[in-house]
């Protein structure tokens, strides 16, 4: 993929549940190697945006492209370049770590041999290879998340979507997760779109997308957004950008 083609391109995206507008003309880009943090209060439209980018359903208006492939017109090619870690744990608890990963590899058409190589590589990278034959039920929350991230990377995606992956993790596990994701962006040139409401997870080198009431309220590198709002902390910028409509 050419470096000029954004890993994720969202244009004029709108979506409504009946009369209630969830997204209204949303647009942004995430480049390779960029870690974009999607911030927004509850009900801002983050979940809807993730449902649309994972093509759970289609938006009637707007366009989503993953690595230059239209999600609507060329959905299989677009989804092949996407890795996702959902907010809810989605591993089969009664299957082993390796069985869960093999299932994912099969869905992405990897051969058995290739799958075993990549499973080993991804699990070793996160110190989980020795536990590959354990049932997921036996793992703690932090380790399950590591397995989910390994799974999302098995097919070498261009874009990684993370939907509040640190929810429910203790402080050391959260820190390890944040560090690992940032390292992935640097070492693999991976683009990450990370939905969170935990401001302390945001690094200085990250970019920010602030979503509120279905609209993008700010977009840019952290320092640009802070400068634009005339504040010194992400927390202050966030409160200022999402104050409208609050009781």
């Amino acid at each position: 993929m050419s470096a000029a083609v954004p890993a994720l391109e969202v244009e004029h995206l709108s979506f409504a549940y009946g009369p209630r507008k969830a997204l209204d003309g949303v647009g942004f880009r995430v480049q390779r190697g960029e870690c974009a943090i999607l911030l927004g209060p509850n009900g801002a439209g983050k979940s809807t945006l993730f449902s649309l980018v994972t093509r759970l359903y289609d938006a009637p208006a707007g366009q989503i492209r993953i690595a230059g492939r239209s999600l609507r017109q060329d959905s299989c090619a677009a989804l092949a370049r996407l890795g996702v870690v959902f907010q809810q744990p989605t591993l089969d608890l009664d299957l082993s770590v390796a069985q869960n990963l093999r299932y994912h590899a099969a869905l992405h058409g990897l051969s058995r041999k290739e799958a075993e190589l990549r499973i080993r590589e991804e699990l070793e990278r996160q110190g989980m290879y020795a536990r590959r034959d354990e049932k997921v039920r036996q793992l703690n929350g932090g380790h399950r998340r590591r397995v989910e991230i390994a799974r999302a990377l098995l097919h070498r995606p261009v874009l990684l979507l993370l939907d509040e992956p640190s929810v429910g993790l203790d402080v050391p596990s959260r820190k390890a997760l944040v560090d690992y994701i940032h390292e992935l962006c640097r070492s693999r040139d991976l683009a990450v779109l990370w939905a969170t409401h935990l401001i302390d997870e945001i690094g200085e080198e990250d970019s920010l997308i602030v979503l509120h009431q279905g609209r993008v309220r700010a977009r840019g590198m952290v320092r640009e957004v802070l400068a634009g709002q005339g504040v010194e902390t992400v927390s202050a910028a966030f409160h200022r950008l999402t104050a409208e409509g609050e009781a």
């Binding site: 994972t54 959905s75 299989c76 090619a77 996702v84 959902f86 809810q88 989605t90 869905l107 992405h108």
Partner: peptide, 14 residues
């Protein structure tokens, strides 16, 4: 409800 249906539906197949 648990979300694992989404891992299937997000696969690159029709």
């Amino acid at each position: 409800e648990m979300g694992s249906m989404r891992t299937l539906l997000v696969s690159p197949l029709p």
